[in-house]
Structure formats: C-alpha cells, structure tokens
Amino acid sequence: MAGRMRMRARMSGDVAEVKVLMQHPMETGQRKDSEGKPIPAHYIKEVMATLGDRTVMAAQWGAAISQNPYLSFRIKDAKKGDTVKVSWTDNKGETASTEAKIG
C-alpha cells in the first residue's frame, strides 16, 4: 500500500528538525507473498524536500530503504510557521507528497 505520509517539523534551538514517515512497501523484487507469488520491485527512488521555494534536501534511494520509510533531517535558517514540503517518486512513477508548518 502506498500514498499516506506523516510529517512532524519542530524548531529545536535554531534548527528545524523534520521527521517524515512514508507509507510504501519498498519491495526489492526478491520477496514472495503468502501464496508464494513473487512480488515485483516497487520502491521509492527520489525524495525531495523544500522550505518555501528553497530545496533543503534531495535523495536518491535504492530498494534497501526499509518498508514504510522513515527520514529525518535538520534545516538551518528556518522559523516557526514556515512550510516544509516533502514529496517522493517511485519506480512505477507514482508520487505522493505532504506538507507541514514548522511548530
């Protein structure tokens, strides 16, 4: 199942700490389901994070990132109320994104 995301962004000192959970199976293509059928590879390849229009983090992932990925990063020169947006694209071209105001 893919699509849902949860993000928390909070000031900690003068740095904004961002924690993101993404619902995604992150299938490597080497696993089988309970009926023994192989499950095709299905994983997030690119992740982007912006603060307003400034890119604050970009990532390239392989299938070795764990299922329902967790990501945390820290942004300088950010303040309460700014909007952080995180989005991803997977190997099937599906995308999802979420945004939150820094608390």
Binding site: A58, W61, I65
Partner: peptide, 17 residues
C-alpha cells in the same frame, strides 16, 4: 542504499532505516 544531497543551509545530518 541511499544518497542524500545536502544543500547550503541544511545540516549535514541524516536519519533513516
């Protein structure tokens, strides 16, 4: 497994699983 680009203004810190 992963590569993270750290632009100017972002801490050189990453946490994942």
């Amino acid at each position: 497994s992963a590569m993270f680009m750290i632009p100017e203004g972002t801490e050189p810190f990453i946490q994942t699983r």
